[in-house]
Each structure stands twice: as C-alpha cells, then as structure tokens.
Design a protein around this nucleic acid. Structure first.
Lengths: 244, 244
DNA sequence: CGGCTGGTTGAGGCATCTCAAACGCAGTGG
DNA sequence: CCACTGCGTTTGAGATGCCTCAACCAGCCG
C-alpha cells in the first residue's frame, strides 16, 4: 500500500518459483496453454477440471448472477491463480479472458490435491493464494462502496500499478486493455463517469495520455494517486464505518 | 438461489458433520469457544493462530483498509469458517464479532494443515469453503454495484433468508442484529437510505415489522423479494455488462 | 428527569446517471 | 479512393437517486 515503488523484494515470486519447480516435478499432467487477446480460458458454467496459474499476460474474470447480470470482478497477473471460485461447485461461476497474449499452466485439480497432500509447502501456498484472493476482494468491495467516482478510478489505477510493481514490472505506464464500459462495470459506475473521471485526473496532472491513444496512460507519480484517494476520504467519509 | 424454500437437503451440513467428526478425532488442540453478543472473536491486526468454525450463532466480519476505512464485509452462520482472509499474512485483516450468543471451534491452523495432509476429504472441504467464500464475495460485489438502493436492501434480506433456509432454520422471520448504519455500511449506502428502503419495502408488503420493534422483521414471501430484485434490474440495467 | 442511541421522515443539494450529439478510427464494400 | 458503418470515447445538458442536514420520536439507562 504505502510506499509503493520502494518495495524491493518480490516476496511471492520467490515462493512461487519454488512452488512451480515442485509442481513441475510432481505434476506431469500439468500442461501449458498459450492464449491471445480475448481468448477465453474458461467460461461460466464449464466444468472445472483445472486450476490455472498465470505465467505471463493479464486476465480478467467476471462473475454471473442467477438472473444474468455480469460483472468484471478481477484483473489477474503473472503469479495469480484462476479458478478458485469454481472449486466448491466444480463448475466455473464466470469467465476468464486473456487481455493480452499470455501463458498459463493448467493444473488438474485432483493432481494438485495429490501434491498438496504430499508437500506441505505447496498446500500452504495454495491456501495463501486463496486467502489473498479473498483479501483482495474485500479491498475491492471497500473501494467500490466508500469512494466517490473519481477516487474510485484513481484507486483502480493505483491498484493496477501496485500489481505491476509487485511483479517487478514498470508501473508508471499502463496499457488499459479495457473499454470505459468495462471499467465502469468493474467499479460500479457509468462509462461516461469513468471517462469524466479520467479527464479530471488528467487535468489534475495525476495521469496523462501521452500517446493520444486514450487507453495508454502514464502515472507520473503513483504516490500522488494514493494521496488523492486518501484525501477524497477526508472530505466526505462516504459509507465507511469509522475513520479512526 | 432460485427455488428458495423448497431446498430439502442441506448438502453442506452433512459433509461438515462428517468433517467435524474427523477433526475432533484428529485435532485434540481444537477448543470450543462461547461468545456473547458483541464479543470479538478476533480483531484486525491480531496474529492468526486459529481458524474458526461456527457451531452456532451469527457473526459479522469487517475489513480495514490501510487508511482506516472500515467496512462490514460479511455475515456468517453455522457451518461457515472465519479467518480465511488472514491466512496469507498470518494476521487478521478485520474483526469478527458475535451478533448473538454463539459457539465456535477454534482450529489451530498448523494442526489443520496436518490433518489436511493426512485426510484428503478434510482438505477438499477446506478448499471448498474458501472457494464458497470467494463466490459469495463476488455475488456481494455484484449486488452492491448493479442494484439500486431498494433492491440492494431487498437482496440483502433475501440472501440472509437464503442462508437461514440453507441451514434448516426458519427463513420467514429475521432478527436484524445490525443497526441501519451497519447495513448501510455493508451495502454501500447511507443509513437514511436503508431506513427509507425498508419503509418502502414494508409499504409494498414485501416485508413487515410485526413486533413494532423495527429490527424484527417478517418476510411473508421470499420469492416476491427475489422477484422485486429481479424486476428492478429490468427497469434500469445499472452498471451490469450484458443482460443476456 | 435528562442524556444517549437508534430509527424515521422531510427538504434541499449534489454526484452521478441518462440521453444525446459529435468525433476519430478501423473495417468493409462499392 | 471514398462513402459508410460500427465501436469506443468525450463532452454537454438535464433528470434523478441518493446523500446530507435537520428535526423529531421512542426506548433505555444512569
């Protein structure tokens, strides 16, 4: 959260490298899968056979309600796992779509269970990944419920940058591979509001569109973004419980 | 979801009974804990030693952002697990508070890992519970982002009733153990809006306050509630992606 | 009694949504 | 090559749903 780009080590990456080594040795059933932009890794309703581990690329996941509403619920990067939400019902509850050329490892769930039972480290890593997903979802809820539109967009960009940074990628430049409508759907606001929020953030100098391609944007100062989010809480404390 | 009170069997309960039997045999370190209304099971920042399995009662969990905002993120009932979100950091990320007199089993996480490694069934149940939590969170996000205020409250009550029903409890009567402010915080709206929404739902006959205690409410027809939620989507499709 | 907490309701304001128009761009087909 | 179309984006103007502020009520407790 706090000091974003001073984070030196990439905690998770090391353990994951370790994990993957184990998996590779112990899971001959694991297969690689290459995907292009807009390829579906899995779709809602499909039987869950594998969990997916992202080696490279970005993915978006959606959820589907009983009555047909659909929402973008997450962006996922290298090192993330996909499919946890389908474990209980053995059936995916939303789609996972590549936003870019990417590679995943498809890990057959029964085989993964096998490895977990043999290898404590693997099991804890799996648990921790699920736990992290839950935490991230909770943060996501909080952001959507307690921030005004502009701050919600700023927070969205900030989180994205933090994800990139955490993985050692450059975080001062983001290629938005989402339409304004998708961002709006993700954040719970109208596409026009997203567009306006981006325009305002640009006017404030918090972001800029150097390429004059309105999906390519620069974040000159990520901490300023965080500050902007934080400040907009002070002004109106929204629906948050207590600002201790 | 769909045919709410016709659900006869309680799928999860059976498997959990089974699981608990195993746990009890294999986990002497597991302890029972009794809580009264407003007791804190754990608090944000505390080191995670145990996961908690709810034997009876209701619990609410919150999440805390880096900058001090707090949000109610979940209600939990008999058969649910608490603490998953803290596994990754070995530290709780929010509070868990009893809303009633209740009993939990505190399961030392290292011991649980041990059992998981020995007992495949236990491990899959744990995974499935985490998975279910993720799914529920996603549903929650969707509801908060795509429904207008009244429908959000209706959906909230409907989910609550569904949870009760799933556990074989009577679902036509809910004792709200939350203030309007907490409900608002949970749903991302002002407490006055919650109050107004409840009044309107009562005027529509979808709920009633028989006790003239405004926290005790009856749901004469749960399917009507579901219909109300569904209908309010038609009117204005909110920020939902596609209404296939 | 008097203060406190929680709930309801009204009035007004504002943030966001909706509707609408215009633009750039890419693809397509004459 | 040039319409022509469709999609994504921006921006404006007006409508509105929700929030804020405020008053009031009821129950509870010291």
């Amino acid at each position: 959260m706090s000091t974003l780009h001073t984070l030196p080590a990439h905690r998770t990456t090391d353990r994951l490298a370790d994990l993957l080594e184990r998996l590779q040795r112990q899971l001959p059933g694991m297969t690689r899968q290459l995907l292009h932009e807009d390829d579906m890794l899995y779709r809602s309703g499909a039987r869950l056979q594998n969990l997916y581990f992202i080696r490279s690329g970005m993915f978006k996941t959606t959820t589907l309600s009983a009555d047909g509403r659909e929402q973008l619920v997450g962006l996922h990067f290298r090192g993330d796992w996909l499919g946890f939400d389908g474990l209980a019902s053995r059936q995916f509850r939303g789609d996972a779509i590549a936003m870019d050329i990417g590679e995943v490892w498809a890990v057959p769930y029964p085989a993964l269970l096998e490895v977990c039972m043999a290898d404590r480290e693997v099991m804890t890593v799996v648990h921790e990944e699920m736990s992290r997903q839950i935490s991230r979802d909770h943060d996501s809820m909080l952001a959507r419920c307690s921030l005004p539109a502009d701050a919600r967009v700023a927070n969205f960009l900030h989180d994205w940058a933090a994800s990139l940074d955490q993985r050692g990628l450059r975080s001062d430049r983001i290629k938005l591979r989402l339409t304004r409508a998708e961002i709006g759907n993700f954040l719970g606001m109208a596409l026009e509001s997203v567009s306006r929020a981006l325009s305002r953030l640009a006017k404030e100098g918090l972001i800029s569109f150097p390429e004059h391609d309105r999906r390519e944007l620069h974040l000159p100062d990520v901490t300023a973004l965080a500050r902007f989010v934080h400040d907009s809480i002070e002004r109106g404390a929204g629906a948050s419980l207590k600002v201790a």
